[in-house]
Design a protein around this nucleic acid. Structure first.
Lengths: 146, 146
DNA sequence: TTAAAAATGAAAATGATATTCAGAAAGTAA
DNA sequence: TTACTTTCTGAATATCATTTTCATTTTTAA
C-alpha cells in the first residue's frame, strides 16, 4: 500500500496534479480493500463516513488510478466497470460466480505461455488480455445441493 | 446457415413468436456475414436496402438470436456489444487488434483444458468464459514499420 | 373473416459514464 | 503572509448505448 501511494504520488506530480484530502481518502479506501469495487460501490462505502464526497470525484479518482497504473479496470459483463488495486505482484485472471458475485483470482503460467504461442502463430503482439471464467463457486454449489 | 435458421424457427415456435419479414431479413443478413456486428453496424447495413427497418427491431432480433442460441454476445470493451453467429462448430476465442479493429478467431484446446483444471482446483463449475487477447495484428505492425 | 397475440418503429426512458461550470482549495512566488 | 494561478470538487447536466413504451400494423389460429 505504501508503494502504491508512492507510485500514485509520483504520477500525480508528473501530471501536475494537486493533492487533496478527498483523493487521499479515496485512494486509502480503495487500496485498503480486497474488493473489486464499482464506482457506485466505492462511492457508497466512502459516503458512509464522508457524506460530502461527490460521485464524480470518486469516478475521476478511479479513472486516474487506472491511468497511473495502480488500478486495473475490470468488466464482468454486468454493466458496471470495476476497479481492482494492481499491486506489484503477478498478473492474475478471474473466476466470477454468477450466483453470488464472488470473485476468485487465479494464475496459470501455462495458459499465459499458450496465449503467446497462439498470438505468435498470427504474428500478433499482445498488449493485454482478458480471461474470465463464469460459473458457480463451490460455496453456491454446496448451498444449492442442500 | 440453413441449420441456424431451423434452430431459430424451432426456438421461435417454442416461444410462441410470429414470423415476420423484418426478422427474416435481419437473420439472413446476420448469418450471411463473417463480421462481428454491433447493433448499430447491422442496423446501418440493413438500412441501406431497407430504409424502413427500425433500430429497435434490429436490436430485439439480435437479443433474440442470442437467446435462441444462434448468436453470441461479445464485448471487446469499446462500449458496444457485438454479436457473432454461433455456428455448430467448436468454441473459439478472439484476438482483437486495437489499432484497426480486426478480429481473429482462435481455438486452443490446451487452454480450455487448463481452464477446467483451474476451476476444479476451486470446486468451481464453469458455464462460460471469455478469453480475449488485445494487441496489434500482423498487418498493422507491418504498416507501422514502413 | 375475425379476434387475439405479437411485432414494428418512433419516441422516450434508463442507467452508467463523462463533462460542465462556478466556487473552493492548493500550490507558487514574492 | 498575500496575491495570483491552476487544479479540484460537487451538483447538475450531457452523452451514449441499450431498453422500454405505446400506438399501430401484421400474423396466426379459430
Amino acid at each position: 500500500m505504501r508503494e502504491e501511494i508512492a507510485i500514485f504520488n509520483e504520477c500525480a506530480k508528473r501530471k501536475g496534479l494537486k493533492s487533496t484530502s478527498q483523493r487521499a481518502l479515496i485512494l486509502k479506501t480503495f487500496l485498503g480493500s480486497t474488493s473489486h469495487y464499482s464506482t457506485e460501490e466505492l462511492y457508497l462505502k466512502i459516503r458512509k463516513n464522508n457524506p460530502k464526497i461527490g460521485y464524480a470525484t470518486v469516478h475521476r479518482a478511479l479513472k486516474l488510478f487506472a491511468e497511473c497504473g495502480i488500478a486495473t479496470e475490470l468488466d464482468f459483463g454486468d454493466g458496471q466497470t470495476r476497479f481492482e488495486p494492481l499491486r506489484g505482484d503477478q498478473h492474475h485472471d478471474h473466476l466470477v460466480c454468477t450466483s453470488c458475485g464472488s470473485i476468485i483470482e487465479f494464475t496459470e503460467p501455462k495458459i499465459e505461455e499458450l496465449q503467446e504461442l497462439v498470438a505468435a502463430k498470427y504474428g500478433f503482439k499482445i498488449n493485454r488480455h482478458r480471461h474470465e471464467l463464469y460459473g458457480i463457486c463451490a460455496n453456491c454449489t454446496a448451498i444449492a445441493s442442500n
